[in-house]
Design a protein around this nucleic acid. Structure first.
Length: 703
RNA sequence: GGACGACUAGCUCAAUGGUAGAGCAUCGCGUUUACAUCGCGGGGGUUAUAGGUUCGAAUCCUAUGUCGUCCACCA
């Protein structure tokens, strides 16, 4: 045998990947044999901003295991790669780049800026796809898509117009989450709440002199955001609150602004909190907007898109930033004797998930997609798809948060005031679409939808939609369950009249050993590319798969990757031994490798163990139990095969033992292949059987 | 404030009602036709706590604690 003593992934992996690519077998159209049933996975398209992180590495491992397993089982497998333009995220990284040159996007202007983002996409967008290859991903590169390529853009346009004509898209002025830095609206899912120490200010609103209220000069309200009082339209109390019953219907004078506003009763007011009386600012708070709408209070916007006080506020405050205004208002109130007390208060502050700027709530003209959970609405379709069991979640407990979210979902604000993205296809609108609007079309837009719009030009083959939709499994991270998964589901049902995938696998989150989220900014992340460099892709994959136990989050241990490397070396050396044996024995045929009449008990035992292992792996893969499968194959190969059977065969091998050795190894390569594709392929290429395939990748899965 | 999950050997995890296992770490022995990235063997656990169900509980139930993730309009 020509195999070297220790396995060196660097000598093997790139070489093997190149051979696979040249074979064309990543492409379902060129797979050998009769393959009637298709098996499709579309990869969750990574943002073009990023580099591969452990979450990707895990997800790629999982998907490649499934795809390789099904390919070996004779399915027409398609794993479709691609990337996402990731609107705000990408715009932000390019802006950061510009900042280094002392420029802003406004200095460049819209056209030049977008050009610049495309340059970024060309330069960095492919890096992540190259990293996919490093992981051994058997994706069909001829079908690579980008959420802003030509055909995809047509799909997005068609989808928008479809909703628009159906009356599901409307425009309206609503209080929306607004990032003063990104200068755009954000959906609820794009904000993150962070705990901050703040104050709770108790402010006295003088009761109107004309009111016949005795013994009470003020109503005191508690607020964490005194600056918004400039836009107050009412003071609200709970209708059941006895303390304020006599005040409802009366007026107070809004301090600093000196206008009269009413005291109203509304059930949304919590009796327990603060004083039980709350200032109502319909322009800058969602609950207040709701209250204001019901009581027809009107709206006064006092904070603008840049986070400055508007001209609708009293002169002294105009142009101040929110924080400056807050300071001045507090000191002014203090001078007037209207500040009753101040308490420390810890609360959740909404932050932009991309740039961490504090979110302002401001009224703004936006586009919305109706999300009704009744009457055949989009949310209802997505609910039914899961409730009916057509789409199953693994683990099942993710169904609950999914359904809860959809049940209570508000209309989806789909417009963004940024430059990088799909333009809203309506005359006069400069807005672009929320990046998830295009991502929602991923399972079918990538396969050529809508064929009528000639979107098939280029990558997708003519009949891809018929052949590969619905896809089989969507494997993704849990934090985009609603952001992405639910939206793909209703989009698929709306446009294709069919669910986009039948099974959703929510993969475990990779945490640090301490159980904390891996974070780039904290420096607690681990770069899978470095792991590949150090241990090889096979070892990295095996080490990751080994740790996937149920839906449990993974406290990542590099030791497991080390274990993967040792395991690979074991496979390598066992193969060296067996191939040397069979080389002497001149076995030429896998099918008739041994004569089953002359088997020793040990021969029979290892064959039975192999059979059971195969069954177990099939069952495990089918239920996404990758760790269980990895443990079993490890146990089988290392202990049953190497420690026990090989050692026995050396000392008291039967007539057929050398043949059985070769046969069991041959089968082992197949069942190991989904985990560790490179090393198994390399060994396979050195196997002496004459009736083997060109590549292990397209062998027949053993039974 | 809700929902979900975790808590088992020093570490990371198995074991879903029947005498608690693996890998790593640790200790001892060992170079026999692959592999020292190895082989053989040893030590190490009242399964977070308190109750309950059961012939029998790591496993089921109830509380408590700690940690984690997601959701949420308490100003």
């Amino acid at each position: 045998m020509e195999l070297s003593k220790a396995y060196d992934p660097k000598q093997v992996e790139d070489k093997i990947y190149k051979l696979w690519q040249e074979s064309g077998f990543f492409n379902p159209d060129y797979l050998p044999g009769k393959r009637k049933k298709s098996y499709t996975i579309v990869v969750p398209p990574p943002n073009i901003t990023g580099v591969l992180h452990m979450g990707h590495a895990l997800n790629l491992t999982v998907q490649d295991i499934l795809i390789r397993w099904k390919r070996l089982q004779g399915f027409k497998t398609l794993w479709l790669p691609g990337t996402d333009h990731a609107g705000i995220a990408t715009q932000n990284v390019v802006e950061k780049e510009l900042k280094k040159e002392g420029l802003s996007r406004f200095d460049l202007g819209k056209e030049k800026f977008i050009e610049r983002v495309w340059q970024w996409k060309e330069k960095y967008g492919n890096i992540i796809l190259e990293q996919f290859k490093k992981m051994g991903s058997s994706m069909d590169w001829s079908r690579t898509r980008f959420t802003m390529d030509e055909g995809y853009t047509l799909a997005v346009k068609a989808a928008f117009l479809h909703y628009y004509e159906k009356g599901l898209i409307y425009r309206g002025k609503r209080v929306v989450n607004w990032c003063p830095r990104c200068q755009t609206s954000l959906s609820d899912l794009e904000i993150e709440f962070k705990e901050e120490k703040g104050k709770l200010w108790y402010i006295r609103y003088p009761i109107d002199q004309k009111s016949n209220i005795k013994n009470q000069k003020y109503v005191t309200v508690a607020t964490t955001r005194p600056e918004t009082m400039l836009g107050d339209m009412a003071v609200a109390v709970n209708p059941k609150d006895e303390r304020y019953k006599n005040l409802v219907g009366q007026n107070v004078v809004l301090p600093l602004v000196n206008i009269e506003i009413p005291i109203i009763a509304d059930r949304l007011v919590d009796l327990e909190f603060g004083t039980g009386a709350v200032k109502v600012t319909p322009a800058h708070d969602l609950v207040d907007a709701d209250i204001g709408f019901r009581h027809k209070l009107g709206i006064k916007q006092v904070i603008d898109e840049r986070g400055k006080i508007t001209k609708d506020a009293p002169l002294p405050y105009q142009g101040l930033s929110v924080l400056e205004a807050r300071e001045k208002i507090i000191s002014d109130l203090q001078n007037l004797g209207l500040l009753e007390k101040v308490e420390d208060y810890i609360h959740q502050i909404p932050k932009c998930y991309r740039c961490n700027t504090t979110i302002e709530l401001i009224p703004s003209e936006q586009w919305f997609l109706k999300m009704s959970a009744q009457g055949g609405g989009l949310a209802e379709m997505a609910i039914k798809a899961v409730k009916s069991g057509k789409i199953k979640f693994y683990p099942k407990n993710f169904e609950k948060p999914y359904l809860e979210w959809l049940k209570n979902v508000k209309d989806w604000c789909i417009s963004r005031q940024i430059w990088w993205g799909h333009k809203i296809p309506i005359e006069g609108s400069e807005d672009v679409l929320d990046t998830w609007f295009s991502s929602a079309l991923w399972p079918f837009a990538t396969l050529g939808w809508p064929s009528s719009a000639k979107a098939t030009e280029g990558k997708a083959q003519k009949n891809d939609l018929q052949n590969f939709y619905p896809t089989d499994v969507l494997s993704t991270a849990r934090d985009i369950l609603n952001l992405w998964v639910s939206r793909m589901i209703f989009s698929g049902m709306e446009f294709m009249k069919k669910i986009p995938f039948s099974r959703v696998y929510i993969h475990p989150t990779v945490l640090t050993k301490e159980g904390k989220r891996m974070s780039k900014s904290l420096g607690t992340g681990i770069d899978p590319i470095l792991l590949i460099d150090k241990y090889g892709a096979d070892a990295t994959r095996f080490g990751i798969a080994f740790q996937i136990m149920g839906g449990q989050d993974i406290k990542f241990l590099e030791d497991n990757i080390m274990m993967g490397k040792k395991f690979c070396n074991k496979v390598w050396n066992a193969s060296r031994f067996v191939l040397f044996q069979s080389g002497q024995n001149k076995i030429e045929n896998a099918k008739s490798a041994f004569n089953s009449k002359n088997l020793t008990p040990a021969d029979k035992k290892i064959l039975k163990s192999l059979e059971e292992t195969i069954k177990f792996i099939d069952k495990s893969f089918d239920s996404f139990e990758f760790g269980q499968a990895a443990h079993r194959v490890y146990e089988f190969f290392w202990h049953d095969f190497c420690d026990s059977y090989i050692e026995i065969s050396k000392k008291e091998g039967g007539k057929e033992s050398k043949n059985v050795l070769a046969f069991v190894l041959f089968s082992s390569l197949k069942i190991l292949h989904p985990f560790v594709p490179f090393i198994t392929e390399e060994i396979y290429q050195n196997f002496p059987f004459k009736d083997k395939q060109k590549f292990l990748m397209v062998e027949n899965w053993p039974k």
